[in-house]
Design a binder for these strands. Structure first.
Lengths: 180, 180
DNA sequence: AAGCGCATGTTGACACAGCCAACATATGAG
DNA sequence: CTCATATGTTGGCTGTGTCAACATGCGCTT
């Protein structure tokens, strides 16, 4: 899906976006290991060093992809809550799980051990927003005082299930059955 | 802590163990990225290709380290349950969390996205044993019919909390407070 | 006790990665 | 129209994983 360069032009015009798309492709296709600055450059049709004008390092590229992932996750969670207001929590849980299964390499990049989010503020921010979507729903459903604790427990439960599914230790069905 | 080679001898004598120790050191010190076949060989005092007589690839070395990690985790969980039989479940939960915090890089290797456990049977087996320790305790504490489901929920909760702590998204205290 | 097979180590090489420095180009602000 | 500067390019360096060919000596067989 990565848009190749407009042929014959010295300047690409939209390299950053193209590189991100290429990186996403590589990620989905071959896992994190397959995401390479040089290969992304190749896919984009530029020289091996062009990416450095947009990302200071390979990690930065990965972080940008992960940040996009968190934005997508947040949208998914918001949509799930909006679509099923009476059972928003389990709806979000299901959405979370489906996201993990549907974009396994991306999920593993977002939550795996490759990136140190502390080193990438944008990443941390995007992640924070996604989690806020979860917490907000729990806040509306929990009994007053226990909100903070229950929110955390719900979050951890869903998150744990998602990891177990993404690591193929349990099936999606088992996870969904354990939600509520 | 990695035992260097007995000087002057062509054959090392205990290279496999030494390499594992070196890899553990590198992991704890610099994270997964720092674990390198060549660097492990250097620490062990052998040539850059000697490791291939004991591990067919870098991934295999990492998998072996992770497998050791799962064995350690299992021992920890067993010990926790044995030490506090009346509250075995929360004791194991605490142990799980402490393991994640105390051996962060190892934990992230074990559960991060670097290894594909399907490709390393030993790894999968060790992981299975560790989880069995958890499940067993839950089985003793849950109301009959719901055992399977409650076991999974407990596992997921602890696992999720551990991940959140390891990723520094919440503190150990928050996690422990959310256990029971 | 002698000899030898095979596990274990070594040397050398290759491709490929990330990253740096120096240079080229074209775009848009003035 | 000019030119500063953002964007790309070329070339090179170090380090890594992995393969192939060769060396060594431990331990079993006889």
């Amino acid at each position: 899906m990565s848009t190749p360069a407009p042929a014959g032009s010295y300047h690409h015009g939209d390299l950053r976006r193209t590189l991100l798309a290429a990186a996403r492709d590589l990620l989905e296709t071959g896992g994190v290991e397959a995401v390479t600055l040089r290969e992304a450059a190749r896919l984009a049709g530029v020289s091996h060093n062009a990416p450095y004008r947009h990302f200071p390092s390979r990690d930065a590229l990965l972080a940008a992809v992960a940040a996009e992932g968190f934005e997508a996750l947040r949208r998914t969670l918001d949509a799930a809550a909006a679509a099923e207001p009476t059972a928003a929590l389990t709806a979000q849980g299901r959405a979370y799980l489906r996201f993990a299964v549907g974009h396994r390499p991306l999920f593993r990049l977002m939550f795996g051990a490759v990136l140190e989010s502390a080193a990438h503020p944008d990443l941390a921010a995007a992640a924070g927003l996604a989690f806020a979507a979860l917490r907000q729903v729990v806040a509306g459903a929990a009994p007053e005082r226990a909100v903070e604790r229950e929110a955390l427990r719900a979050w951890a439960l869903v998150h744990g299930l998602a990891h177990l599914v993404a690591d193929r230790r349990i099936t999606l069905e088992q996870a969904e059955a354990s939600l509520a």
